[in-house]
Amino acid sequence: MTSLQDDHPPTMEAMRAEYEAETSRARAALIEHSLVTMPEGEDCRVVGSPPFQRAVMSVASYLGPPPLTSKRTGYFFVPFTPDGASDEQVTHRLRTNARSQLPTISVHEAYPGHHWHSAWLAAQGPAHPLRKVFRTSYFSEGWALYSEKLLRSVGYYTTKGALMGHVEARLFRAARMIVDTALHCGDMTPAEAESFMVARTALTPGTATGEVKRYCAWPTQAPSYLTGALEIDLIRDEYLAAGLGSLRDFHDRIAGSGALPLGLARRVALGED
């Protein structure tokens, strides 16, 4: 991955433009393979992260449409560096958004990751408003990581580099599980966590520093990605084995249920109202 990261967009704005192009490609793939139902009027805008967020977020993020309304526009925030960042810090950030990594990250943030999920949930009727208000990252991030693997199954990652970027992204989430639990249970210091992330993932030292601070400040969130994705895999197996519908039906059903705690998501997927 280190050598693949030499090939990255040259500037922050170029990074945003390349994410925008990749997001369009992910949307087209989603439609081509009929993996989900597209909600009417959805729109994912790819923009630089708000300046106030740049100091606390080193990676891409997303803000969804307000789910109790008819709006379906969401925002994919590309992780710009804070104002005043050094050339080295900018390079670190661009290297952790290398061209080999843009496909899997775009799938995660947009289609069918956070944006599709949020727009689809907003398009559900008014019967269960609580499910539009209360969310857990164990489902929402689990769904987005599940999405990354789902797109691999239809051949979305067309180069060896993109496939490596996809696999590395999964490894990154596994590393987060180790680091978050170890940090908060007193088995690892922040410095050790940074070293671990640099050694075991494609994070540059600068991005690893920001990431570890995030884990320290936000316990239990970092393990939610892989934990949720693995659980959704299992629920899918149960759904399909029981003959409850097609793969597309499963996606529509479980993602339309909200971002429920995983046990509740399973109950809805398997038939409970």
Binding site: T136, S137, Y138, M177, D180, T181, L183, H184, C185, G186, C216, A217, P219, T220, P223, S224, L226, T227, L230, E231, L234, L260, P261, L262, G263, L264, R266
Partner: peptide
């Protein structure tokens, strides 16, 4: 800043996973 294992486990079990009936959520994290 450390949450500690007891509270970490409680949050996972009572809030995030909410009775999956499986070990995946809590065992994966712990």
């Amino acid at each position: 800043w450390r949450m500690g294992e007891k509270l970490y486990s409680t949050v996972l079990q009572d809030k995030e996973c909410s009775a999956t009936g499986r070990r995946s959520c809590t065992s994966a994290a712990r």
